[in-house]
């Protein structure tokens, strides 16, 4: 299978027996349409957003506890000491595609964005993307353009922040109805 012709293809990564196609977010729709119509990826399995905040800094890998506390990355500890590789941008959006049918295969279509950038919606190509994209917006704060119904899905409409972001405070949720009114 050759992915040479995928529009906006930046990089093809082969790892763990999986193929990742990194594309330019501006050309994501073209790439998606090409994958569906020309290469047979008719089934969108999942849309996963990930936050790579702090990758490439020294103390991310494998810490347990606070940053000021015990540093398990000290060379005396076993395991992998490598600092994780710097990523192109903060967020990745991964579209896990499946060519359902004879000669089934999977591919990961990936695009990278920063906080102030948006990803086009792929609903018109795979309608199942509706809720997946709403979830990416709700929990990770990825702005999706062209989505007909982009609102929070798992959290309440008035929730502040996007909890799956790495800079979202843990355990700091305000308790509701606790003040005398």
């Amino acid at each position: 299978m050759s992915y040479e012709g995928v529009p906006g293809l930046v990089e093809t990564i082969e790892a763990h027996g999986e193929t990742t196609l990194v594309v330019d977010p501006a050309r994501l729709l073209e790439a998606a349409r090409h994958l569906r119509d020309s290469l047979g990826f008719n089934f969108l399995s999942d849309v996963a957003a990930a936050d790579y905040l702090g990758w490439g800094e020294g103390d991310v890998s494998g810490y347990i506890g606070t940053r000021a506390g015990r540093d398990l990355n000290h060379p005396a500890t076993f395991g992998l000491q490598a600092v994780p590789a710097t990523k192109p941008k903060r967020f990745s959006m991964s579209y896990h595609l499946l060519a359902l049918g004879p000669n089934a295969r999977r591919v990961r279509l990936q695009t990278w964005v920063n906080e102030d950038e948006a990803v086009p919606s792929v609903i018109e190509i795979w309608p199942t993307a509706d809720w997946h994209e709403r979830e990416a917006w709700d929990l990770m704060g990825i702005t999706i353009t062209g989505h007909p119904n982009l609102k929070r899905i798992l959290l309440e409409d008035d929730w502040e922040g996007h909890p799956l972001r790495k800079d979202y405070p843990i355990g700091g949720e305000p308790v509701r109805f606790s003040e005398a009114e």
Binding site: D46, G62, A82
Partner: peptide
């Protein structure tokens, strides 16, 4: 995984 002792991100389909 970032190479550490905890998952960096887990997403279920």
């Amino acid at each position: 995984s970032d190479g550490g002792a905890k998952p960096w991100r887990v997403k279920f389909r």
